[in-house]
Amino acid sequence: MSDTKCKSRDESGVVVTITEEWHVGKSQRAVKMLALSIGLSQVSIYSLATSVSELANNLFFHTNYGGTITLKVVRKNGRAGIEIAAADKGPGIADLDSAMLDSFTTNGGLGGGLPGVERLMDEFEIASQVGVGTWVVARKWGKCS
């Protein structure tokens, strides 16, 4: 990975609103472009795309009015990374501990979406309040120094 890629300064975030199913693909493409621009490895890019896909699908399938995926380049200690933030306005997750369990599902899916994202990403935070909304922030760091 070349240093020039790490030094590029494009810190503008991308916001993708998820209200329809095809927006999921749109968010996937957006995160791939952003990850490519800071020179992340192919496996990291696939991990990011899969994570965004899970989170965007959650916004589409589990919320009342959809939500937003915000993607941005973040930097810490000379390393560049991608931050994914998913936010929605409800219904919120009643039992966060269960939601983070593999094979827990409320819609007949496979379950494992959220815990999968936690494993794929380097940092993962989730907060939720019933009737208010859910926020997920996850980051994947590159190897640049």
Partner: peptide, 16 residues
């Protein structure tokens, strides 16, 4: 299946 997809699937966990 592409190699990176296999890597991602395993990290996602379980026998997806």
């Amino acid at each position: 299946m592409q190699p990176a997809v296999a890597l991602t699937l395993i990290e996602m966990g379980r026998e997806l």
